[in-house]
């Protein structure tokens, strides 16, 4: 019985191994490869066309903005992996931004203030998850509604007794500003700590997703919910925890953005509404669930930030950038997230 097996295995292994590139292009790594190629191409073109594009200063600022977008897109990636979307992210960012500024203006100690905001973000995410579990197809709309309510509530809270609507002024602690501002230093080195924080978070997350039981459960749910249920992987728990993570990271991003700008502003999250989705999609995570990952999103984030910097260098304004992002999403979705023709669904 043992004899024929080895022969068979060799026979089968040979043809599948023959072209490495073709295999990569068929696999999930396709997204990473295309993304990375796009990134290199963009960077090269931009360096040629825009003066000072490859300077240390510009790269530092690209990385700083990428760190914010990267943290904001973390939750979006997780949620997209199980086939959902979270549009409350920009609103949670805005709300936590002004609420933190508000708390800094009170006698609450700064670390406690940060903790309060983080817990609030996680709670909103938890709520998103619980409320949308039974209507997963409409999670996008539901989270949009929750986001609206959250941002409205936060503004009402911070505006009561203040005459500046939407903007909160307070003194941001210097150590906190250092973390996220462009002039920040990390152990004396000339780059803001938030970049290091992002890298650390990214590394931990990727390790967790790839190597642990609970991390793999996300992919199992994204791939086949019924099969996952048969293996006692709880869809509810996975769904709710990804949304909770999304709420938490959005709140943290909102806090860090306060350190970056120095003043609370509710609109600070607005650019992240669709940009997080764009980063996820451009990286190559399929919005249908089950494929892609945070590594891909990091590439997507870098592509978008390099592109933004490039477009700014070329003199294009914010509006034009939005259009370009929108135009970039379509071919990327077409590449990764096409549904099969109806004749294959019968």
């Amino acid at each position: 019985m043992d004899q024929p097996i080895d022969i068979n295995r060799k026979e089968v292994r040979m043809p599948t191994n023959k072209t490495g590139l073709a295999r990569v292009l068929r696999s999930d790594a396709k997204g990473l490869l295309i993304g990375a190629a796009l990134l290199v191409a963009l960077f090269t073109v931009a360096s040629i066309l825009v003066d000072g594009f490859a300077s240390a200063n510009n790269i530092r600022s690209i990385l700083l903005l990428a760190a914010f977008l990267g943290l904001a897109s973390l939750g979006q990636t997780m949620v997209a992996t199980i086939g959902g979307l979270d549009l409350s992210i920009p609103f949670v960012i805005g709300a936590s931004n002004i609420l933190l500024a508000y708390l800094f203006g009170t006698s609450v100690p700064a670390p406690l203030a940060l903790l309060i905001i983080a817990v609030m973000g996680a709670a909103i995410g938890f709520l998103n998850g619980v409320l949308s579990y039974k209507i997963q197809g409409q999670a996008l709309i539901l989270t949009l509604g929750v986001g609206f309510a959250v941002v409205g509530g936060a503004q009402i809270f911070t505006t009561l007794g203040s005459q500046y609507s939407g903007t909160v002024f307070s003194q941001v602690p210097a150590w906190f500003s250092n973390i996220a501002s462009i002039s920040g230093t990390t152990f004396g080195l000339q780059f803001p700590p938030v970049i290091a924080i992002w890298m650390l978070v990214a590394f931990t997350l990727i390790y967790w997703i790839n190597r642990t039981k609970s991390g793999r459960a996300i992919y199992a749910i994204g791939g086949n919910r019924t099969a996952a249920a048969r293996l006692r992987i709880s869809e509810f728990r996975t769904w709710v925890s990804t949304y909770t993570i999304s709420g938490l990271t959005a709140a943290i991003t909102g806090c860090l953005l306060l350190g970056f700008s120095g003043g609370g502003f509710v609109g600070v999250g607005d650019p992240y509404l669709f940009t997080t989705v764009a980063a996820v999609v451009v990286g190559g995570t399929s919005l249908l669930g089950g494929s892609g990952g945070y590594g891909a999103t990091i590439i997507g984030v870098l592509v978008l930030q390099v592109l933004t910097s490039f477009l700014v260098g070329m003199g294009l304004n914010y509006a034009a950038q939005q259009t370009v992002f929108g135009l970039l999403i379509l071919p990327m979705v077409a590449l990764y997230a096409r549904s099969p023709h109806i004749r294959y669904q019968i």
Binding site: D28, K213, R216, Y219, A220, G222, G223, N224, T226, A227, A228, R230, L231, I233, G290, S291
Partner: peptide, 19 residues
């Protein structure tokens, strides 16, 4: 419907139950 994870590798389809 209730067995395969089409997005995962051969090894993981085998291993998920054992994690």
């Amino acid at each position: 419907k209730e067995g395969l994870f089409p997005n995962l590798s051969i090894l993981e389809n085998f291993g998920l139950a054992l994690y």
